[in-house]
Write a protein that binds this DNA or RNA. Structure first.
Length: 599
RNA sequence: UGCCCGAUGGUGUAAUGGUAGCACAAACGACUCUGACUCGUUUUGUCUAGGUUCGAGUCCUAGUCGGGCAGCCA
């Protein structure tokens, strides 16, 4: 099983949004802090969403509050149940052991309850009680509020604050004007309440085709903020919805549905990304226009997380899939939560990265190195050490007899306070990493070279006597002698040599497919020139047949491993089987030697 | 010639009128049976110009630069 620390190592962060929340808590403005994470079920979650999740859930958990998972599903044309399930799964993975106790889900099929608050009809849907079996829970859905949303729309009409408009989509655009040019009033703007009510009822009844009419807020067509120029509240769509089926042909738009969904759930702080800043006055307008009896939620915006060397645009991710660059939403090279999970990135590392990026309104990109560092930081204490040779080079220990076996002891978890160990068997023929031998060594090369010595990790020091090549001049094997006095327990255990390399026995190891993943793009900003496909890293995936030490036979999916001196690895949860094991490289170890070579 | 948001080392972020700090990255060194980890040292910063103030990264004004907004998408 996957082991996850329950708390992030870093202290609770502070930022401008948390400052506001703290202030509200101090004022006791709300009975309880409630946030929400509102994905649209039209795609998979990625690392960018992880930041939103960490903020939404983080603030809830720091304030003994709750964060509702809500499907923002007001556009039936784009959304599917497949995504609903995947999103729930990904969120559960990301917050497991960290904020699962404040995940707000509702009882299956539950709808908002109607009550009288301060003499006014009010609707409220709260999360299911803790302890409710998971099978009886589901996320919140904006689509489950369609009745209440409709009732609020009627109230808006009665208040003279909304009207049915017969302008076509094209005409609506023309009437809206431009940022530097005021719009014009719709000719339908001053319909009577009775006529609006009649028309709206008939829109709901399905009397009109798509786009024929819409319900609009009556605000100000000359407002400098485009979103206040009588924005649409409802549009007609004769399309089945994954939750409500054919019940509706009238669907609310985001700006209308979102603020009210927040209110309906008792959300207090509605946190979203910067592009919604211009919508905030509309968010407030809708709620304030309705004179609602309970405290209103407020929207606060922050900047998105944008790591370098990758892409977090749904559209571009889909293009990678369609072009066959990626094998699916769970391709380990993708920044999707599914891809990351399959790659072997622990949820705690995603959180550490997302939280560490901070919360501001400054549009920035975060170096992927910060993420890679977070992954290593989390994995280092978690990963069991193993020996594996990814590009095998045969090496014969000439002073060992064929069939002779030298028992060694290898450490599993050097970072632990009480490290455990496992046996390894050194034999006459072993494999070492091709990279660990150089016939013509560069300066400061610590590894094996002709006539040179190196330690075989956990075994003994060896000396390279002979380099054997085939007729074509290609290296075929190395012939070495082992200094058995340097074995554990031997008189010269402590003899120092500059290099230590990993190895596996040629006869005891087994072959396995290893997928060596690297960054998907070769440049920090793949889409800077609008042509990200040009910058795909041709070596983002390299498949090799490696030789693994016998203990790796028992490796289970979800178990974090370190192949010493190579990097962190996991069993591929999808393609691996005991007959044909497959390992994914999550990330290499930091490699200052390779870096030196680049210069 | 509209409205809104933003600007602190290479990157990200803190400092809430009082010593510009942290992380990553980079460089060097120590340690090392992982060229990992760990530890130590170092380089690099308040967009510009005015103003308020004993004192400004912080407040004010103007400018510059960057971003968002004209979906019946979210």
């Amino acid at each position: 099983m996957t082991v996850e620390p329950t708390e992030p190592a870093s202290p609770a962060p502070s930022d401008f949004i948390r400052d506001i929340v703290a202030q509200h808590v101090a004022e006791k403005r709300y009975p309880k802090i409630v946030t929400r994470f509102p994905p649209e079920p039209n795609g998979y979650l990625h690392i960018g969403h992880a930041k939103a999740i960490c903020i939404d859930f983080g603030i809830a958990r720091e304030n003994q509050g709750q964060c509702n998972l809500r499907m923002d599903d007001t556009n039936p044309a784009k959304e599917e149940v497949e995504y609903v399930d995947a999103i729930l799964d990904d969120v559960n993975w990301l917050i497991a052991g960290w904020a699962d106790h404040c995940l707000g889900l509702k009882a299956k099929g539950a709808k908002p309850a109607t009550s009288l608050v301060a003499g006014q009809t009010d609707y409220l849907l709260t999360a299911a009680a803790p302890g409710t079996p998971a099978a009886r829970l589901e996320p919140f859905f904006a689509s489950h509020y369609f009745d209440q949303l409709y009732a609020y729309a009627v109230r808006l009409i009665e208040l003279g604050k909304a009207y049915v408009c017969d302008l076509s989509p094209q005409e609506t655009d023309e009437y809206r004007g431009a940022p530097d040019r005021p719009g014009r009033n719709s000719p339908f703007r001053d319909r009577s309440v009775a006529e609006n009510l009649d028309l709206f009822t008939r829109m709901k009844a399905g009397e009109f085709p798509d786009g024929a009419r819409s319900l609009r807020a009556k605000i100000d067509m000359s407002a400098p903020n485009m979103w206040l120029r009588d924005p649409l509240l409802y549009r007609i769509r004769h399309t089945a919805h994954h939750q409500t089926g054919d019940t509706w042909c009238l669907y609310p738009l985001y700006d209308y549905a979102h603020c009210l969904s927040d209110y309906l759930e008792g959300v207090t702080h509605s946190l979203c990304s910067l592009e919604f800043t211009d919508h905030r006055p509309l968010y407030d307008w809708v709620l304030e226009s309705l004179s609602l009896p309970r405290p209103l939620p407020h929207q606060y915006e922050f900047s998105k997380l944008r790591p370098t060397y990758t892409l977090v645009s749904k559209r571009k991710l889909i293009q990678l899939l369609n072009d066959g660059v990626a094998s699916g939403w769970d391709d380990p090279r993708l920044p999707t939560l599914r891809g990351l999970r399959r790659r072997g990135v622990p949820a705690s590392a995603v959180r550490r990265f997302a939280i560490g990026a901070g919360v501001t309104k400054f549009i920035s990109s975060t170096e992927i190195a910060v993420f890679e560092h977070a992954i290593r930081e989390e994995l280092n204490p978690l990963a069991q050490r193993r020996l594996a040779v990814v590009r095998p080079l045969k090496l014969v220990l000439t002073n060992l007899a064929p069939g002779e076996v030298l028992e060694c002891t290898a450490v599993n978890d050097p970072q632990s306070e009480q490290p455990t160990s496992r046996p390894m068997r050194l034999t006459r023929e072993v494999f070492i990493e091709s990279e660990d031998f150089a016939e013509v060594p560069p300066p400061k090369y610590f590894r094996l070279k002709p006539g040179g010595e190196v330690r075989l990790k956990y075994a003994c020091i060896i000396k390279c006597d002979e380099v054997v090549k085939d007729a074509a001049g290609a290296l075929t094997e190395l012939r070495c002698t082992a200094d058995l006095t340097t074995r554990a327990g031997g008189p010269n255990v402590d003899r120092k040599v500059k290099g230590t390399i990993h190895w596996v026995s040629a006869t005891e190891s087994f072959p396995a497919e290893v997928r060596l993943y690297d960054r998907l793009f070769t440049v920090p900003e793949p889409d800077a020139d609008g042509d990200f496909l040009k910058h795909i890293n041709p070596r983002s995936l390299e498949v090799v047949t490696a030789r693994l030490e016998p203990a790796l036979k028992d490796a289970a999916p979800g178990q974090f491993l370190q192949f010493e001196r190579l990097g962190y690895f996991v069993v591929d949860p999808k393609d691996s089987s005991s007959a044909k094991p497959v390992f994914n490289r999550t990330i290499t170890l930091k490699d200052t030697w390779a870096k030196a070579g680049e210069k």
